[in-house]
């Protein structure tokens, strides 16, 4: 009988879980400290942009403002000076919109059709061109900067928005083509075969079969391109004229201009304004953004 009772006592039911184990304290402790470090610059940016200059000069960049003012934001948006222009970052913002929207559309349109052709309509030489294209993603832009200046000048597009849109489409092509090619290759090939037996041609299969199945990858590509092009500095500064400079270039010119008194609160408001668009996309898109950068890591 003793044996039987001994099986009746002792642990039974779900194993109790301790919350404050050493392991958990270490894991969450580390992650929280790291998170604070990552959030710190954002905090500083926001706080600084809400203070007046006198308060900044007195004190602590980490401290919240004693007196909140939106003056710096207004000034950054509509009054900050670059060179002789004193109409603020709004000009750069609208330039960036005018650059980003068509660049994103054009580059995605070209790359998606391209990726589709490569995935489903393999033709002779396609792989060679594709390999060159992918290799091109690694070539430092610096090597191609000047030849493109010459090409654009010959076409009469140097310094124009159209020229810059072309440049963005070209440099977006490797990663986007790869993205679309891999996606279309992952769709069942039999679907494509069935459509061919059903008599659909290149464009009909693209528009009626492939496109409706590919919404997520288009969103990923859009996230990738909008953030990438919005954040671009190098192409903007080289291939456009000062009155067409994108927001990043204008921001840099405002903050790093040597003339006048440094207005740190205005600078931080301007910096935040410039970061707002990609941050917005990032926080809204979540997992898709992660998917995009995993693919877009090639872009560097």
């Amino acid at each position: 009988m003793a044996d039987v009772t001994s099986t009746l006592v002792g642990p039974r039911g779900p194993k109790p879980r301790k919350i404050l184990t050493r392991n958990n304290i270490m894991i969450y402790g580390t992650l929280i400290i790291v998170s604070l470090y990552y959030l710190l610059p954002l905090w500083v940016m926001v706080m600084t942009s809400l203070k007046g200059m006198p308060e900044i000069r007195m004190g602590n960049i980490f401290a919240p403002p004693l007196e909140i003012t939106f003056e710096p934001w207004v000034k950054a948006w509509s009054e900050a000076c670059t060179g002789l222009n004193c109409d603020g970052l709004s000009r750069g913002f609208w330039n960036s919109v005018r650059i980003t929207v068509p660049s994103v559309i054009v580059s995605i349109a070209i790359a998606s059709v391209n990726g589709y052709a490569l995935a489903n309509w393999r033709f002779r030489g396609a792989d060679t061109f594709f390999t060159i294209l992918i290799f091109g993603a690694f070539i430092p832009y610096q090597v191609m900067l000047y030849p493109i200046v010459i090409l654009l000048r010959e076409m009469g597009l140097y310094g124009s928005l159209t020229g810059l849109i072309m440049v963005h489409s070209i440099f977006g092509m490797p990663i986007l083509t790869l993205l679309f090619r891999n996606y279309f290759s992952s769709l069942p090939e039999e679907l494509f075969k069935a459509a061919r037996v059903d008599g659909a041609g290149f464009w009909r299969i693209y528009f009626q079969i492939m496109l409706p199945m590919s919404l997520p990858i288009f969103v990923v590509a859009m996230i990738l391109q909008v953030t990438g092009i919005w954040n671009d500095f190098l192409f903007g500064v080289i291939y456009t004229k000062p009155d067409l400079y994108p927001m990043t270039v204008q921001l840099n010119n405002i903050v790093n201009s040597v003339q006048g008194v440094k207005e740190y609160n205005v600078n931080m408001a301007a910096t935040l304004l410039t970061g707002l668009v990609p941050l917005f996309i990032y926080f809204v898109s979540g997992k898709l953004f992660v998917r995009g950068i995993a693919a877009g890591a090639v872009k560097g």
């Binding site: 992650l31 790291v34 990552y38 610059p41 903050v255 910096t271 979540g286 950068i293």
Partner: peptide, 28 residues
């Protein structure tokens, strides 16, 4: 946690550089 650690990657190098210029500013 992932969102917090990854968000700087969404920002441009220009924004990154300017923020840290400010955070590391020796006077403030």
């Amino acid at each position: 946690f992932r969102t917090i650690i990854l968000y700087p990657y969404a920002l441009s190098f220009i924004v990154t550089g300017l923020v840290w210029q400010w955070v590391l500013n020796p006077e403030f």
